[in-house]
Design a protein around this nucleic acid. Structure first.
Length: 293
DNA sequence: TTCCAGGGGTAGA
DNA sequence: TCTACCCATGGA
């Protein structure tokens, strides 16, 4: 077992970051209220298991790595990069924190070091999972992603666990398999096409992490992906650290209706207007808004 | 049986 | 640009 200490830009709260998103409950992630675990396939083909936890000594996280053989420096570096991306350890949110001071419903963000959103190591995984959240219940999303990982992911040699499947594996399985075995319904065709395009190199999703495109262009680009509409594109943007679009779903409509419109039905425009003053931070303002208080 | 879930694509206007 | 309709799946 190997141990990696990774510092984060303060303020950073590991627990709050993991709890920020339902992603922690989608395979291959698992969460026991203390450590975030995940089997990960490295670019060398080696499959390792990560257990990420908070630390009292440093602002950041401690990563325990298990593998069947000693890892190379390159492999350890890859793991470090992936963990930093998943938890947004270097993300600069100072301006957002400044704005939160003036809003009672967001003061807890600064006080508790919130503001980071858990994401997957690859954009491909985040896009697949986002498509799997559309027009179905969360339980169905868990089922689809769970079966995808279980059936197509590469096995971890030391325990019966799998990594998130590569685009190549999903592309090779094909649309019918995704429909019949993974039970993705009509989403199967989108996921199959996406996986083929990523596997062939026609679609460079990972390049979006450091794209120089403006958010509006990125949004358009994402929407051109089959299966990615308004909601999904905005959600993916937020996982890329672009917070100036708000994805309106039934959940957002419900929250805004109850909190700002006394339970009356709201239009998407009304939801947008509520958060428009937050400008480039509007998604974070919505996401971390204290709806109960 | 019908409806709809943290929607999206398409045709037709 | 806007609307109506269809799209698998599974639970209420």
């Amino acid at each position: 077992m190997m141990r990696l200490e990774l510092a984060a830009r303060p303020p950073f709260n590991f627990q709050a970051t993991v709890r920020s998103h339902g992603w922690r409950r989608l395979a291959p992630f698992s969460w026991d209220e203390e450590r975030l675990r995940r089997v990960e396939r490295l670019s060398t083909g080696r499959v390792v298991k990560l257990a990420i936890g908070g630390s009292d000594e440093l602002t950041g996280v401690i990563v325990a790595i298990r593998a069947n053989e000693a890892l190379t420096d390159g492999e350890v570096g890859e793991i470090e990069g992936k963990v930093r991306w998943m938890l947004g350890l270097e993300e600069e949110l100072t301006d957002f924190y400044g704005l939160c001071e003036g809003e009672p419903a967001l003061r807890h963000v600064v006080e508790e070091g919130k503001g980071h959103i858990l994401r997957s190591p690859t954009v491909y995984e985040d896009v697949v999972k986002t498509i799997c959240t559309t027009n179905c219940t969360w339980r169905q999303t868990e089922g689809m992603v769970g079966r995808l990982v279980e059936r197509l992911g590469e096995p971890y040699p030391l325990e019966p666990l799998k990594a998130f499947p590569t685009p190549e594996a999903v592309a090779e399985a094909g649309e019918n398999y995704l429909k019949q075995e993974v039970r993705m319904g009509y989403r199967a065709s989108s996921i199959a096409q996406l996986s083929r395009q990523v596997a062939s190199g026609d679609l460079d999703l990972e390049g979006l992490k450091h794209s120089s495109l403006g958010t509006a262009e990125l949004y358009k680009w994402l929407k051109s992906i089959k299966g990615v509409g308004q909601y999904a594109a905005a959600h993916i943007l937020s996982l890329l650290g672009r917070y100036d679009y708000l994805g309106i779903d039934t959940w957002a409509r419900k929250l805004v209706s109850e909190r700002f419109f006394d339970g009356a039905p709201v239009t998407d425009e009304e939801v947008q207007e509520v958060f428009a003053p937050w400008g480039k931070w509007r998604f974070l303002a919505y996401w971390f808004w204290d709806w109960v208080g």
